[in-house]
């Protein structure tokens, strides 16, 4: 139900959306040693999508992002459970994560953690749950 014709918002969103999405990815990756992480990054991504929903209507947004957010939540859950249950194979206590420093070309020295994958799961869950809630309220008029 698109009844407003808010040209300023629409134009601004087209640009802003990418900045917000990009920043949310930054926040997500920064979360390892600095403030940030999967939860806040996921919320920010969800915020970007909500901004899109405010500007356009649900049908348009579904056209742009054909994602079933419930499935996204489940994928996130599986990510989180899978990475934490990986420690079961090595007979280490549940949720124990491995990490190590790796030298990659171009990117330089990196500290890679399996906890990042866990956080990715959290990210998906947060985006999925938030969007499911918003859609549930927003779908029927």
């Amino acid at each position: 139900m698109r009844n407003t014709n808010n040209i300023i918002l629409e134009t601004a969103v087209k640009v802003l959306l990418f900045f917000i999405a990009l920043y949310s990815v930054y926040i997500f990756t920064a979360g390892h040693y600095y403030p940030g992480g999967g939860f806040i990054g996921g919320l920010m991504t969800a915020g970007a999508i909500v901004l899109l929903l405010i500007t356009y209507d649900i049908k348009t947004v579904v056209g742009i992002l054909p994602v079933n957010f419930r499935i996204l939540t489940a994928i996130g859950l599986l990510f989180a459970i899978g990475t934490s249950a990986g420690s079961l194979i090595f007979d280490a206590p549940f949720l124990t994560h491995a990490f190590g420093d790796v030298h990659l070309p171009i990117l330089g020295d990196l500290s890679l953690h399996t906890a990042t994958l866990f956080d990715l799961g959290v990210y998906f869950v947060v985006v999925g749950v938030t969007m499911t809630i918003i859609q549930t309220i927003g779908e029927d008029e």
């Binding site: 939860f39 938030t130 809630i133």
Partner: peptide
């Protein structure tokens, strides 16, 4: 607090949806 905030975020969201459905 972070944990409690996340939980209360979830519960409040659910409560809002429930209230909306109940209103309908």
């Amino acid at each position: 607090i972070l944990t409690a905030i996340v939980i209360s975020f979830g519960v409040t969201a659910f409560f809002l949806v429930l209230a909306y459905r109940a209103y309908q």
